[in-house]
Design a protein around this nucleic acid. Structure first.
Lengths: 355, 355
DNA sequence: ATGAAAGCGCTAACAA
DNA sequence: TTGTTAGCGCTTTCAT
């Protein structure tokens, strides 16, 4: 708060020669009748004195803050983009969104941020699948502040009003199919066990994809976290390939960064991409566009996801005014899918998996 | 704000059989004498009823919010890391930091966020070198909320209490020197005119470095933004090289991503790195560690920068309690450098510029 | 069409 | 050691 005394509605009332109630009415454009003369006087006073509403006082009185709080595991990569999208979305529907990074998946920091947000009496909370124990979360959020989750799989529905999840299952399924269609008869998934929940989704998708293939293929999966270097992982893949016979090898990596480092290793070892190895990542990170060959990837539509998170939140907030501005198609999709909404991913084929 | 009525200190007072003033005293651990019995009763009541302080009410009454606001051009890359560091720093010194992305350098969004933050009566503002006009900024911030800038060069001192800038000038100077020592006799800088202010700093640094070399070298600079593709830029560089004679070519790119795409182009054209081209980026982005060859880069110490931003802020806030916890060395550096503090960058030599 | 007044939940003198 | 009370700046009901 600034040292200098701030201008209040009392000052405006004085300057305009009206009561504070009138000032409040004018400033909030409430639908009570008032003379245009009064409106002019008040607005002029506000302009001249440089009035700026104190939202703390307003929220306190109104018992609604029009502020939302959000927790992401980090500002890097997709989460950062998603957070930006959410801020834009929130603004569009009359809210303001404060974002906090839980610095990795640290439950301590997570708890602290949640606590502070609740102390600030945010109207709603938006969280990634939390690192905290469910018990702690339930207790923390139990007061009645609506919680919308994103990328949270298998969370009890009593704790959150809903979840909006990227559909890695269908996405990875499609990637497998794409690799198959490009001729791969050996398919490999490189996962990351340290990011368990999201890694699981990918694995399921890959498995589904493999099951649905018209002709069976050889398949393996590795956990990048259990190798000291990407080279060692490649050794293993080479060994597997030696057994399973020749033919094109298709590889799906946990995310674009991991995949890129794998692709570098492959190229360094003299293989050609996509003539021998076909490689696809996930995230559609900017790096996919600057590497060589350009990397096929799965795009995560942050804007769509943000849209549905906002939708669920407004429903929980019973903000019908805002809700009425949502396109009908979104409302029906939400209606159809219930408390867990799937956001379809988009395959972006590039040079690394052929043409 | 949640539907259900929240627990207030009135409830606690009732439950513990004391006055609200006493409750307030206990909860804020003020240094007024009180019986341990009272303390116990109040704390127990708070625990049982699940009390959570309403910081809006507290801030309103106290006329200080212990909240800081921050504006970054984006959550991606260095700014995201810096924002995380700032959130940690703020917490360490008893504040809470809300970060907003101005989505590129959009002055409109920037103004909106600033406005909201001021309406929230944040105690202080932390901003990147702003996109808004100085006039608009002056008017907006003129109310008395301290503003600390980061990566802002040449801003009038009446508007902000200070600036904490990454020292690209000295950093690029060092990179030039490094390339020279590794044997380069042709040196090229690839800039990005769309990010004018920070591009300028780099150019100055490169020039300084060139001037200080014991033996003159051939040098050029390009603006990546004025080429349709990185290939075309490389054409130009090849042409320049043809004129200036043979020898090792050293290249400094605006940031790691741009530099990486350049390096890919160079390799694709059959040159060897670092045997013919020595290449260095800026940012020490994670990609530097997964590309091939590993990319030399300039690390930007986000933690150090955050430390000094916080220092300047606490000074402006006259928060001597917090200030007293700062290490002496930081205080003296701040004292020495005045209202504009330079954060030294760190050269991280990797394979792309030799061994 | 405008105003008086009672809160919102908490802090900080000051009194007891 | 504890309690009373007057705000903080704004919203909102109810009179006028």
């Amino acid at each position: 708060m600034s040292r200098k005394r701030q201008v209040t509605i009392v000052d405006l009332a004085e300057a305009a020669g009206v009561s504070i109630a009138t000032v409040s009415n004018v400033l909030n454009r409430r639908n009570v009748p008032m003379s245009s003369e009064t409106i002019r006087k008040v607005e002029q006073a506000a302009e001249q004195l440089g009035y700026r509403r104190n939202v703390m006082a307003a929220s306190l009185s109104r018992k609604k803050s029009y502020e939302l709080g959000m927790l992401v595991p980090s500002f890097a990569g997709h989460h950062g983009r998603f957070a930006e999208e959410m801020q834009r979305m929130a603004h569009t529907y009359g809210y303001h969104l404060s974002v906090f990074s839980a610095a990795g998946f640290d439950p301590e920091i997570e708890k602290r941020h949640l606590d502070v947000l609740l102390q600030r009496r945010v109207d709603g909370l938006i969280c990634h699948g939390l690192a905290m124990s469910q018990e702690a979360t339930r207790q923390l959020v139990g007061v009645g502040t609506p919680l919308v989750l994103f990328n949270a799989w298998g969370w009890p529905t009593d704790i959150a009003v809903g979840a909006v999840n990227l559909d890695f299952v269908v996405g990875c399924d499609e990637v497998v199919n794409h690799l198959y269609e490009q001729g791969c008869r050996t398919i490999c998934y490189i996962g990351k066990s340290s990011l368990y929940a999201t890694d699981c989704q990918r694995r399921i998708g890959v498995q589904n994809g493999l099951n649905r293939l018209s002709e069976p293929v050889a398949s393996v999966s590795f956990d990048a976290d259990s190798f000291a270097s990407i080279e060692e992982l490649l050794d293993q893949l080479e060994a597997f390939r030696a057994e399973s016979g020749p033919g094109l090898v298709g590889v799906i990596g946990f995310d674009d960064v991991l995949t890129l480092s794998f692709m570098s290793a492959v190229l360094r070892r003299g293989y050609r991409v996509p003539e021998e190895f076909l490689i696809a990542g996930i995230n559609n990170d900017p790096v996919t566009a600057i590497c060589h060959p350009l990397l096929t990837s799965l795009a995560l539509p942050a804007d769509l996801q943000a849209e549905f998170v906002m939708l669920l939140m407004l429903q929980a907030l019973e903000d019908n005014a805002a809700l009425s501005r949502f396109p009908q198609e979104y409302l029906s999709k939400a209606e159809r899918e219930g408390h867990e909404i799937q956001i379809p991913l988009q395959l972006v084929p590039r040079r690394s998996t052929g043409r």
